[in-house]
Design a protein around this nucleic acid. Structure first.
Lengths: 350, 350
DNA sequence: AAAGGTGTAGTAAACGATTACTATGACAAT
DNA sequence: ATTGTCATAGTAATCGTTTACTACACCTTT
């Protein structure tokens, strides 16, 4: 039982009331640069105002082939990491007259593909992949095919993270960030540095792991598999992983934990506290991302800084440029990361 | 310079290729219950698949008068409070085939009205006001007028917070929550309880203040204006407000601070730490909202619990019911709140 | 055998805009 | 006086669907 009021007034009624043709009314309403005499324009605007006319964007989009809709594909919009990016995107989109659709993929290929189809049907002007690419069997190929359909239609697509997709991208330098953070821990005297990895099917998580391993290799420190713990970028599971450290012989225990993202690091912080370990006295902890949250926990978190909101803004700006055929950046733009040292890390006591 | 590929294929080409009329093709694609013979159906589906056909939602919406788009108006999507609500909304929307547009109003009437117009132009099926109503001169009336236009068109509108709008609503019981939290502090022996208020133009913030005052009145404790501090729901400014407490004579200092939301409470926590005050030994602190964050800070935050994600789900569910003409709830649905006691509050030491 | 129902398919009119073309009168240039 | 230009306005096609009507063949029923 769908009740649907239908008093909706179209440009036809506006034209009628103003005593002009529909074409003329349209020209006034849509603000083309087609000349319309001032008296006529006023009549049309007056009629529109009196009738409370609201131009139908759907009809307009159909004719102009521009929906003015863009979408952001995120893992989870309630994750502050994505929330920051989305906010940056939306700011720029809004100013430029685009509306932003947020899609939670939960990092599931099925959901991602499904949304992609829905967005294609909707003729979204642009799509931003905020989350990293998923490395699952056959998936990159299937995803690329769907994305190609969007591109063929004239849609713009970019990624904001390490991704399997061959599209323009703006990315933080995850490899360097992880490498430098690891080097910093080495400088502080740490030799047994544990790494809590992210989901193994997430490209960007693996890049960070690479950075960690690269730094150790440079320092000539062998990588001990026992120090690479599996995490999933969420706080809850991490506590359990950290618990396992207690069972190690003291001389094998890490003196520092480098978590692949901030949420994980905070999970570690909580887990360690429950175990009675003091941070940074007993063990140093650091994360990756520098969420607003990182400054609120106790101890405040040492982490790799990425300016997520700004990257969101830059992403949307680039998307618009592409849509207007004026993107001049090179395909892959890498943004530097920096290390922010706070209270959760310290030099090893000799 | 807009470059726009145009190889887009419509249902006409699908029909041609399948050797049937457009009407028949449409009947297959749009899954009506109009009977189509099985062989014909297969031909159409095959043709659609071969051509990689993607039905144009815009055109469809234009004909059916249903956009399948809903919007959530939030203060700021990167605020975890709204992020949780939005996530709940999106979950349900997604399952029901709706796409969710998130609009950041920054609690500015101008932005809110502007978005409302844009959403009206887009013929959004529904609009959810996640943020509380703004009490500014003339604003409630102007907003209601715009909302009425949406309703007249057949759009559904609800609010998820105390609001000036006369539309169906699902709300947490802010008054009771604040009243009970205050009563609990009284039980713990506190007599000088400071309240850090929210933005004075925000209806829901004032409701919480009312709850606080009601509890004090019940207990026969006079309200001292000096203990009601102005906040703005954000963490940063709050630290300054708290700083002012230091200048009070010890016998006038509050023994507890009740902040109108969690962010504010956390700001207070940080401010107090910088001042060297211990929580809860020197002073108790509690908040309102129970964001995920509340469990991560140190000390963990005592606060009023509201199940934001679930309210988001309920809100979207109700919106769909309204659109289908089957909403049976009473206009104003109040959800109970509960008090979660954690480490930031304690009984006053005698 | 006539009448009426049922299943399946097609024709064409919307939905609400934009815009390529055409038309017209005023005015300037030749 | 003829031609050309310009500003302004209208006519009608079009974007890609859905759906009310119409058509017709094939069964039942009487």
């Amino acid at each position: 039982m769908v009740s649907r009021a239908n008093s909706s007034i179209s440009i036809v009624q506006v034209a009628e009331r103003a005593g002009v043709s529909v074409a003329t009314a349209s020209r006034v309403i849509s603000k083309t640069n087609y000349p319309v005499s001032e008296p006529t324009r006023k009549k049309v605007l007056a009629a529109a105002a009196e009738l409370n006319y609201s131009p139908n964007s759907l009809a307009r989009s159909m004719k102009t082939q521009r929906s003015n809709l863009i979408a952001v594909l995120v893992g989870d919009n309630s994750d502050p990491y994505f929330a920051e990016i989305t906010r940056g995107v939306e700011d720029v989109a809004n100013e430029a007259g685009y509306l932003t659709i947020v899609c939670n993929t939960d990092r599931k290929p099925v959901k991602e593909l499904h949304y992609l189809q829905t967005l294609q049907d909707l003729r979204a002007d642009g799509i931003i992949f905020a989350g990293g690419g998923l490395q699952e069997p056959d998936y990159p190929e299937r995803l690329q095919l769907k994305v190609n359909e969007v591109l063929r239609r004239g849609g713009a697509v970019i990624t904001l993270s390490a991704h399997t997709l061959q599209v323009p991208s703006i990315q933080a330098d995850s490899f360097e960030g992880a490498r430098q953070m690891t080097m910093r821990l080495l400088e502080l005297g740490h030799r047994r540095i544990a790494f809590i990895a992210g989901p193994s099917n997430l490209l960007v998580a693996n890049v960070r792991l690479q950075g960690y391993m690269a730094a150790l290799a440079e320092a000539g420190i062998p990588i001990s598999p026992g120090l690479i713990l599996q995490g999933n970028f969420s706080e809850s599971d991490t506590q359990r992983a950290v618990h396992g450290l207690a069972s190690l012989a003291p001389e094998n225990r890490p003196t520092a934990i480098f978590a692949a993202n901030d949420e994980t690091a905070i999970g570690a912080l909580l887990g360690l506290r429950k175990m009675g370990w003091k941070v940074p006295e007993d063990i140093s902890v650091c994360g990756f991302g520098d969420l607003p949250l990182a400054q609120r926990v106790v101890p405040t978190l040492t982490t790799v800084h990425m300016d997520l909101r700004e990257m969101g803004r830059a992403g949307m700006t680039r998307l618009i440029a592409i849509l207007n055929g004026e993107d001049t950046l090179k395909p892959l733009v890498i943004w530097p990361t920096s290390i922010v040292e706070r209270d959760s890390t310290s030099a090893i006591h000799v």
